[in-house]
Design a protein around this nucleic acid. Structure first.
Length: 589
DNA sequence: AAAAAAG
């Protein structure tokens, strides 16, 4: 498999040694039965001197004071900074709405965690490993990192009391100007993890003047995500973090009229959140230039580096005017990373993993013949309706394989008086967004979805994920069930398994076993069949010919393993040495 | 083989 395009994303072939070193963290979710084991930490990668932006000069008299004494004044953002920032006449809408009344000073701290939606206690015991040379140490409080007054106030407004593990480890790394690759779910505070350093860096960094007198805009940071809804979600969060910092965040995505997005862009943009297709369009129309990009963040990075996105990502990262690696900071985030992506990083990489919330999900798998799926689904829905689970705030997400299948199932559910809606790529963007809102609000507490909803979407109160059709890739399964058990809450995931899913038997069984779930005997039996067992992982059934590295490393337990040492990306994976021995071979260990 | 992402 050609890796050069991904190398362009992540590596610096020409830069000085280590200049584009991917600093990251490695961590492992530790289920309750294995906790209280000391977290491993290894430092093995070659030096990474990518401090290109870490040592951004103090701003001196620039318009970007590290802290803004005027943050209390609404609608003021200090205009006149090229294409970025809020124009003086613009009034910045308060993204916190009425909640902001409680914003700062008087809010008592003791119950704030309640409101974050993140069950911090569930994260307390997560072991985190980092690997790489001279990794900045993790922090335990936001106070330890100087993000600036305005950003700190927004953190307070968000009612974040202390950083989540992914934030504790990645923020210092990012602030030090290092590239990183981190494995974590959105509900674990991932968006903040890459937004805080970007916002902080833009505020205090020295910003060269952006070209004037052109309608082209020059964002300083680019955040890419694989679906429109995810981009919208990231934008909403990023707006909160950047409120009254003077840093302007704009989102662009397809399926919506372009002129409105263009108007937003022309009002100034510092951080651009985008889906690849629309961004390519904007680049070709010269509406956007990437010349000034200092930060590139890929959310759901494994999907972004997937074959289907390759041409677009290549255009954006290689063929447009984006600064090369080493001249920009690159951050990759995903809940799963196939080993091929890791090998792209070669021996400069440091790969991380932060507690996936999968351990908080009860996983069940049931053998359901294709023809029985609907009635079985009906049984489940009836049961949870009767037991009151399907209240207003308990949502059920049903994944199916095809768009057509989604429509059909939604129709059937509605006929049977189950309030359902559907989201998939054949619906208009308006319909998609309406469906998502209707689901979130509980108006239609059943959402039938294709994989468009599998990744990254943070929907509170999804109590049940049903894999009506199982995916063909264990990573997709991990992403899908990650829609429940968000932010440290518990959730239920039910999968319908039948003879069409034999290729998943081994992977699913292993995954469930390692997550300390009850594995049906029949599934183990299927997994043991030589014709099915492990064919996928070993011979490349996945998109990358492999699976999430956690899974790979666990399948390497017995033997020849470690193909990542010699593997494709031109380099070792030696940094695994101390941190990822057999004893720590899996996320679920 | 399917889904997503431009119109």
């Amino acid at each position: 498999m050609g890796t050069s395009w991904a190398d362009a994303v992540e590596n610096s072939p020409t830069g000085p040694p280590g200049n584009a070193g991917i600093a990251a963290l490695k961590s492992a979710y530790v289920p309750p039965h294995l906790r209280n084991r000391p977290p491993a930490s290894s430092v093995a990668a070659p030096p990474s001197g990518n401090d290109g932006f870490a040592n951004a000069r103090p701003t001196g008299g620039s318009q970007w004071p590290a802290s803004r004494p005027d943050y209390g004044r609404r609608g003021y953002g200090g205009g006149g900074r090229g294409s970025g920032g809020w124009g003086g006449r613009d009034r910045e809408v308060n993204p916190f709405g009425k909640d902001d009344a409680a914003a700062a000073d008087t809010e008592p701290a003791f119950n704030e965690q309640e409101n974050t939606g993140i069950n911090f206690d569930a994260y307390e015991d997560i072991a985190v490993e980092t690997s790489g040379q001279n990794i900045p140490p993790p922090v335990t409080t936001f106070a330890e990192i100087d993000l600036g007054d305005a950003l700190n106030l927004n953190i307070k407004r968000c009612k974040y009391v202390k950083p989540t593990p992914v934030q504790r480890y990645t923020i210092p790394i990012s602030l030090a100007g290092r590239d990183l690759m981190a494995c974590a779910q959105t509900g674990s505070g991932k968006t903040a993890a890459f937004c805080f350093p970007i916002i902080s860096g833009i505020m205090r960094g020295h910003i060269a003047n952006r070209p004037q007198g052109t309608r082209t805009v020059f964002p300083l940071a680019l955040i890419l995500s694989p679906t429109r809804e995810l981009s919208v979600q990231i934008h909403e969060e990023a707006r909160k973090f950047s409120y009254q910092t003077g840093v302007r965040v704009v989102v662009t995505y397809g399926g919506a009229p372009m002129h409105q997005q263009l108007r937003e862009l022309e009002r100034g943009v510092d951080i651009l959140v985008a889906t690849p297709g629309r961004l390519v369009d904007l680049l070709e129309r010269a509406k956007v230039s990437l010349k000034m990009i200092r930060y590139l963040a890929l959310d759901e990075a494994d999907r972004m580096l997937d074959m289907g996105f390759e041409p677009q990502i290549r255009k954006i990262v290689e063929e447009a005017d984006m600064p090369r690696p080493g001249e920009r900071q690159t951050m990759l985030f995903s809940a799963t990373f196939p080993k091929e992506i890791q090998s792209f990083h070669s021996n400069r990489s440091q790969v991380g993993r932060v507690g996936s919330s999968t351990g908080l999900i009860v996983q069940r798998v049931e053998f359901v013949r294709e023809a029985d799926k609907r009635s079985h689904l009906m049984d489940l829905l009836h049961a949870q309706r009767d037991s009151g689970i399907q209240g207003k705030q308990a949502l059920t997400l049903v994944f199916v394989e095809t768009k057509k299948g989604a429509d059909a199932l939604e129709h059937w559910l509605c006929l049977n008086e189950f309030p359902a809606t559907t989201i998939h790529g054949d619906r208009t963007q308006q319909e998609r967004e309406f469906a998502l809102r209707s689901f979130k609000s509980g108006r239609t507490p059943i959402l039938v979805a294709t994989d468009v909803a599998a990744r990254g979407l943070d929907i509170p109160h999804v109590s049940h994920v049903i894999n009506f059709d199982l995916p063909n890739d264990i990573d997709d399964y991990v992403h899908r069930i990650g829609r429940t058990g968000r932010a440290g809450k518990s959730g239920l995931a039910t999968a319908f398994f039948n003879e069409k899913n034999m290729s998943m038997a081994k992977g699913l069984g292993e995954l469930m076993k390692e997550a300390n779930q009850e594995v049906p005997e029949w599934l183990t039996r299927f997994a043991g069949r030589p014709s099915y067992g492990g064919a996928k992982g070993r011979h490349g059934g996945g998109r990358f010919g492999g699976r999430d590295f956690r899974r790979d490393s666990s399948s390497n337990r017995g033997g020849s393993g470690h193909d990542y040492y010699g593997g494709g990306g031109g380099g070792g994976y030696g940094n695994y040495g101390g941190g990822m021995g057999p004893g720590v071979s899996s996320a679920w260990d």
